[in-house]
Structure formats: C-alpha cells, structure tokens
C-alpha cells in the first residue's frame, strides 16, 4: 500500500533524501517524475499550483503537502518509525541536536548542492563562490564528525542513525561531482561508508552500490 506520493527528479540530491529515508524505513510510495531538467517543469503552472515555491521534492499524503525536504524526513520518521530512534524529537538532549543538523543540511544544499548543479548542469551561479562555500561547509562537517570519532561514535547524533544523517548524507557524498574530493576528510569518508552500509540503502547517480557487501552472500555460480 502506497503511503504518499513523491514528486521527484532523478538527479536531485534533495529528492534522494526522501527516497533514501523511505527505503530505509520500508515505506512504499508512488513517485511522479518531474522534468526538472531540461524541461524546468517544476516551474510550470501545474506544479506551482501544488508548490508555489517552485522547488522539488514535493510530498503529498492525502490533504498534506510538504515542500521542505527536512520536514519530509521528520514526517516519515514520526509516522513510520515505531522505534522512534530515527527522530528522537522528545529527547531533550538528542532532539535539539537533530534539529541543529537539519539546519546545517539546508546550508549544505545552498553550498555543495549549488556547486554540484553548476558543475554538471552549468547552473547560472558563481561557480567559484559556491565551491568555496561548499569546501568550508565540508571542513566544518569534518570537524564535527571528528568529534564523534574521538568520542567513539559513528552517527551525527546519539548511537543510532537519525534523520540528521540522512539529511546531510547526499550533498556530502556527491561533492566529488563538483570536484570537491573526500581525500582530506577521513571522518566524512567513514561516516558516508556507514550510511551506505545501512540495510535497505538505495543509490542515486554519483553514489554507487557498495559492491563489497555482496561477499556476505554465497558464492555466485560462474
């Protein structure tokens, strides 16, 4: 049974956040491909009627329409994670930390996300400026993740992955699309690997499957 409809574009890292969260929680949904590029269909009258901001993704569940990606992650975890671990909203220590990371995730969209769109689709922004901003944001992410490594932790918040990890993962993982390699970011590298190892993980172009995980299966007949 489908629980929501997602208006989505295959190369969008923001749309991918929602696809990934739904996959990890095992929530089935319908998707509607929107010709974001080359058609700019998200700015069409029909799409603007649904989302006046003219952005993707858009999540519709009955009368509810969400247009902010981070809100969609919160909605998915609140409604479809009975363990409550993916979004510990009521926990006085962890809840605010998750919200802090959702804000930083939005910042990454404005730096690394734009740098990537500029690099692959020649998006009309100052490429050098957004790349510089993205590098700075990745350096801050590396610093905060190093804190976690030194504390013996894997995830951004607490000891279980949360919507904070999913919100920050795509733009960090895709930064090499804009020439921002992970060579100088060992903590980011190992955290990305941990996310990619999660059961139910799905890919998007630029983030390939971990082929090494196949070793867990019995040997293939040749």
């Amino acid at each position: 049974m489908s629980h929501f409809t997602l208006y989505t574009y295959v190369l969008s890292a923001s749309c991918y956040k929602v696809r990934l969260m739904a996959a990890l929680l095992g929530v089935p949904y319908d998707s509607v491909a929107v010709n974001f590029y080359p058609g700019f269909e998200h700015r069409s009258e029909a799409m603007l009627a649904l989302n006046p901001w003219g952005t993707l993704p858009i999540l519709r569940a009955g009368d509810l329409v969400l247009t902010e990606t981070q809100a969609m992650l919160g909605w998915l975890a609140t409604n479809h994670d009975p363990t409550g671990r993916w979004y510990p909203a009521a926990d006085p220590a962890l809840g605010p930390q998750v919200l802090q990371w959702l804000g930083l995730a939005a910042r990454l969209t404005g730096s690394a996300g734009l740098a990537r769109l500029h690099a692959i689709l020649d998006w009309p922004v100052d490429g050098e400026a957004v790349r510089k901003a993205a590098l700075k944001d990745l350096q801050e992410l590396e610093l905060l993740l190093t804190d976690r490594v030194l504390a013996g932790q894997t995830w951004l918040v607490g000891d279980h992955p949360t919507i904070a990890d999913i919100a920050c993962f795509p733009h960090a993982a895709l930064s090499p699309d804009a020439g921002l390699e992970h060579d100088g970011f060992p903590a980011i590298r190992n955290w990305l690997y941990a996310v990619r190892s999660l059961p139910g993980f799905v890919t998007m172009p630029g983030i390939h499957e971990l082929h090494e995980l196949r070793e867990r299966e019995p040997a293939d007949p040749q």
Binding site: V10, L11, A33, V34, P38, I120, D177, P205, G206
Partner: peptide
C-alpha cells in the same frame, strides 16, 4: 520526464 530521467540517470552514473 520518465524517459529523459532514465537516460540522465545512466549518464550521471558514467560521469564519475
């Protein structure tokens, strides 16, 4: 949109 995105997905996988 589905047709174009299928091809874009393939090509962006090659890009890296």
């Amino acid at each position: 949109a589905d047709l174009a995105q299928f091809q874009q997905e393939i090509f962006l996988q090659d890009r890296s």
